[in-house]
């Protein structure tokens, strides 16, 4: 019996906890992509860089706060800096829209043109980030590292397997839940949120009903910028901040958004978790897990790993392919055209 409990703890420690935190980060990223898609109707390739930009601003403010000697007790100082990061990133998104996207929106350019334009912005933002903070790896988390350490858990339960929960993982979940709740409240209950959904469902009808397109677009960018900053910061806190990684995050984020159905916020959240859990579960070596469950003194020969961790993106890609083949509108039926 104890073996079974140990096996469960092992899986929780190495799979469930990290995948939940990662899923929250992906869901926040995918929400941004899906909102842009729903309202502005194009896939924003610059989204990864917007996330990186938000994380960068947060890091800079964190350093400033730290240099003043301001801390947040057991929590990372970055949490204090986060509102500033969200505000600056939302401002960046508004500027991007004003200077770049608005022209194409008004001239009714096909979506693929907006996509190419977003690639140009990706270049610019990526270059700016490297210019300001450099391409190096940055660890900017402080405060208490663990909410629950392996030793504490073992002492508490007397099991041979430990369970550790990092502060940053808990933070990812808490912040994501709060933000998503606020977002859904906004979309479902407020007048602006309702007009956003109406605009996303049927632009012409919404315009006829007196919805102001400029306001809807501006609010969307504000939300997208703020969400991207949070997603980037949480990812950076949990792992580390490196400008290059955000370009490769683009694929899992798009996969998550497409799985849930592009344009569907609820789908983006579910998609984020689907991608995160599949990625973690398919690249984990199950050797020790099976050893606990199998007979006494028995161990599998190999690592029992479905896929090497080097092929993490392949998982999101395969999910993407399956969804495109089976149900191109996504599980929650977003837009297909």
């Amino acid at each position: 019996m104890e073996d079974v409990v140990n096996a469960v703890v092992l899986v929780t420690n190495f799979l469930v906890v990290p995948a939940t935190a990662y899923g929250c980060q992906l869901a926040l990223g995918a929400l941004g992509v899906t909102l842009v898609y729903g309202v502005l109707r194009f896939s924003n390739f610059a989204h990864g860089e917007i996330m990186a930009f938000g994380a960068m601003v947060t890091i800079l403010v964190t350093w400033l706060l730290q240099s003043w000697g301001v801390g947040f007790g057991p929590l990372p100082t970055a949490l204090l800096a986060l509102p500033a990061g969200m505000a600056v990133t939302a401002g960046l998104c508004l500027l991007m829209d004003r200077w770049v996207f608005r022209f194409y929106r008004r001239s009714k350019a096909p979506p693929v043109m907006l996509l190419v334009v977003s690639v140009g912005l990706m270049f610019v933002i990526n270059g700016l980030i490297r210019f300001v903070i450099g391409p190096a790896d940055r660890v900017f988390t402080d405060g208490t590292r663990f909410l629950l350490t392996v030793r504490e858990f073992k002492a508490l339960t007397g099991l041979s397997e430990g369970l550790a929960i990092k502060t940053t993982q808990t933070l990812s979940v808490v912040v994501a839940v709060v933000l998503v709740a606020a977002l859904f409240w906004f979309l479902e209950r407020t007048r602006t949120g309702k007009s956003m959904r109406a605009f996303s469902d049927n632009e012409d009808l919404a315009l006829l009903s007196g919805v102001s397109p400029e306001k809807v677009v501006a609010v969307t960018w504000l939300i997208v910028g703020a969400l991207a900053a949070v997603a980037g910061t949480l990812y950076g806190l949990d792992k580390s901040f490196k400008p290059f990684t955000f370009l490769s995050l683009l694929l899992p984020i798009f996969a998550a958004a497409i799985v849930g159905g592009l344009g569907n916020p609820l789908g983006a959240i579910v998609g984020g978790f689907v991608v995160a859990f599949s990625e973690v579960f398919l690249t984990y070596p199950y050797r020790k897990f099976l050893a606990y469950l199998g007979p006494e003194d028995w161990r599998p020969d190999g690592l029992v790993q479905f896929l090497s961790t080097d092929y993490k993106f392949a998982v999101s890609f395969v999910i993407l392919v399956v969804v495109l083949l089976v149900k191109p509108t996504g599980v929650f039926s977003g837009k297909s055209s």
Partner: peptide, 27 residues
């Protein structure tokens, strides 16, 4: 896989396939 669907899907699918090809060649 991706043609015949939205134009964006081709972009995302090719982005994915190129990452996988390079990962494959690396490992």
């Amino acid at each position: 896989i991706s043609l015949g669907l939205r134009a964006d899907y081709l972009a995302i699918a090719t982005l994915g396939i190129s990452e996988i090809i390079v990962a494959f060649l690396k490992y």
